[in-house]
């Protein structure tokens, strides 16, 4: 059904992987991986039709425009870009979305969120990084807070999270902190990934999958 694309043509896409293999590595079914390929094709062909998602195409898909710079979307893109080539291939795309699947282990979600906030990849979430992210969010939402208020929020956050008070949050401290503040992990789960073929039928419609 829909627009047919042969398996041979699909294999020409860089990073294309066998859906059965990808489904065996992830919480997605084979038909869901096939549907995700249709989505991937649409996003990866939106600016340059090279079968890879670059940062501009990622932003375009998220925000429907390419001019909206967003620190956090950039950070998510960087973590999706496992091979650090500045682009996301299909295998990376499916495995990265899998992290946000409701069935993905919480321990690994915590790990991903730690890397997300450890922007300088030092193995610690440092106060200067948290301040930078806080200021970015305030700017994004056009909220104004005095510098004194920002420092007070940082003081409170680090007095709660930085148990050994060395000025930075390590992996164990982060796990401890999110276990006491489970709402912080909400962004790491997208409930609709459990049922993408019915929640987002628009891209599935064009899939050649029969078993949905």
């Amino acid at each position: 059904m829909g627009c047919f694309q042969s398996t041979a043509k699909r294999r020409q896409h860089p990073g294309y992987e066998d859906p059965v293999h990808l489904a065996s590595q992830t919480a997605f079914s084979v038909s869901e991986v096939e549907a995700l390929f249709e989505l991937f094709k649409s996003i990866s062909g939106s600016v340059i039709d090279d079968g890879l998602i670059n940062k501009e195409e990622f932003q375009l898909a998220l925000f429907k425009n390419t001019r909206k710079e967003n620190l956090f979307a950039n950070r998510i893109f960087d973590l999706f870009d496992v091979k650090k080539r500045g682009v996301i291939d299909f295998g990376d795309f499916v495995r990265a979305l899998n992290v946000f699947h409701p069935n993905f282990p919480m321990e690994e979600k915590i790990d991903f969120s730690f890397k997300l906030y450890d922007m300088d990849n030092t193995g610690f979430i440092e106060r200067k990084e948290v301040k930078q992210m806080l200021i970015a969010l305030l700017s994004e939402s056009e909220m104004r807070l005095s510098d004194e208020t920002i420092e007070t929020i940082l003081d409170k956050t680090f007095s709660d999270a930085d148990v050994n008070q060395d000025g930075k949050i390590d992996r164990a401290e982060w796990e401890n902190f999110v276990s006491r503040n489970p709402s912080l992990m909400k962004i790491m789960t997208l409930p609709y990934l459990k049922d993408i073929t019915t929640t987002f039928p628009s891209f599935v419609f064009h899939s050649e999958v029969d078993d949905i």
């Binding site: 998220l62 429907k64 967003n70 979307a73 994004e140 929020i153 409170k156």
Partner: peptide
């Protein structure tokens, strides 16, 4: 304030990936 910084940061639209699944 009762907020911690991560509560505030997690409000960013950059974390909302639902746009990926909507029509491009």
């Amino acid at each position: 304030t009762n907020f911690n910084a991560f509560d505030i940061i997690s409000l960013s639209s950059g974390f909302d990936l639902s746009g990926l699944f909507e029509d491009n």
